[in-house]
Design a protein around this nucleic acid. Structure first.
Lengths: 201, 201
DNA sequence: ACTACATCAATACTATTTCTTGATGTAGTT
DNA sequence: AACTACATCAAGAAATAGTATTGATGTAGT
């Protein structure tokens, strides 16, 4: 399964913005100028704990994840970002402070990324992007809140079910180890949960 | 083969320096403060062509390589850096100019790295390090010169033999593709050279 | 005691990376 | 024209790494 990742198309990003708010030609041009394509290979870091997050990343192709590693060495996944998703450490990015998160690639991944300076420049040149990025951050916020609510109120099985409902494409694309780390259970237990599921209905 | 790369020990670096010139307690403390541990995963870039090389890197565990890619897309390896070796683009680092080299990780690799500012600070606080880094750069220079001489004067087979003599541990640790890229031949031809060798003696 | 999970270890599978080999080609000697 | 020292391409084999499954056993909270 070889795919050409070298050609980064800006189209998916323009489409994404266009669905939120219609862009004119100049605005599309600005986006094209200020976003940079970049390839991250599987297992490669996009951001490492302790570093300052320098980019807002839009995934064109592939899949990234953000996570923390606890004292015991267990990793806890905050977010997956596959095609047409955003991922960054917003706190670190806007406040220019050290991040507590790691972001890395689960697959070879092409992103379109924008630096802080380029983003503030974009805001100045086309204030409309303030609104776009506000909406975008709102969306992330809502997703995060749902996830937290899920997490504190449901069993592993329920969380698994709502995960496959919310991300049907991811559930059979990502390794179960990753899904387990997202759900907060062991891969072994996830294996058993899945096994039960297939027997039930 | 699981290894703990999360714990970066400063010991190998202190040992390394100590073998060149004895350090006192304060100097060891300075080293500890000014060098940062950092993990690079296999295939991850430490430095990319066009970027400015920001660090002097000492490999604690793992292996890095520096290389260029030519117009045809072939990679030519300048240097491998395994345990207790240094790797950086000295020109880019000291002159703060864009590098022509790439440096990346062949294995998951823990380095201790020092930034330009921290290094000049170290020179100021403990002038002894001027001498240490001079020696260190001399060593690199000699290695480079030998490599060049080898390269312009020997056949692939001879270069291979002197490589395994100079780096016996690397010759069966690195993939042959990498060694071939270092020797300047194709992996296929290296395979045949090796085959001939085993038949001969 | 029962539920909902964890931990450890062994085994089986799958995918990816690396190595080898054969066939064929070429540029520069002899 | 033949020979040497390499390259290129393609296919398959071998080695390694990553992933999934299962059984046995453990534990904290109801």
């Amino acid at each position: 399964m070889k795919e050409d990742l070298t050609q980064a198309s800006i189209e998916p990003l323009l489409d994404y913005f266009n669905k939120l708010i219609l862009l004119n030609k100049e605005e599309k041009q600005l986006v094209t100028e200020r976003f940079q394509p970049r390839l991250y290979r599987r297992r490669q870091y996009v951001l490492q704990e302790g570093d300052i997050c320098k980019h807002f990343n839009f995934v064109v192709r592939g899949c990234l994840r953000s996570y923390i590693t606890d004292e015991k060495g267990n990793t806890h996944i905050l977010q997956f970002a596959a095609e047409n998703w955003w991922i960054t450490d917003i706190g670190s990015f806007y406040k220019t402070k050290a991040s507590k998160l790691n972001i890395d690639a689960l697959e070879d991944t092409m992103v379109l990324q924008i630096s802080y300076d380029n983003l503030t420049g974009l805001y100045d040149q086309a204030p409309k992007f303030n609104q776009i990025f506000r909406v975008l951050i709102e969306n992330s916020h809502v997703a995060l809140q749902n996830r937290l609510l899920q997490n504190i109120s449901s069993s592993a099985e329920e969380r698994y079910l709502s995960f496959i409902q919310a991300h049907p494409h991811l559930s059979n694309r990502l390794p179960q180890t990753q899904i387990a780390a997202f759900l907060g259970i062991t891969p072994e237990f996830l294996s058993r949960v899945r096994n039960n599921q297939t027997k039930k209905p």
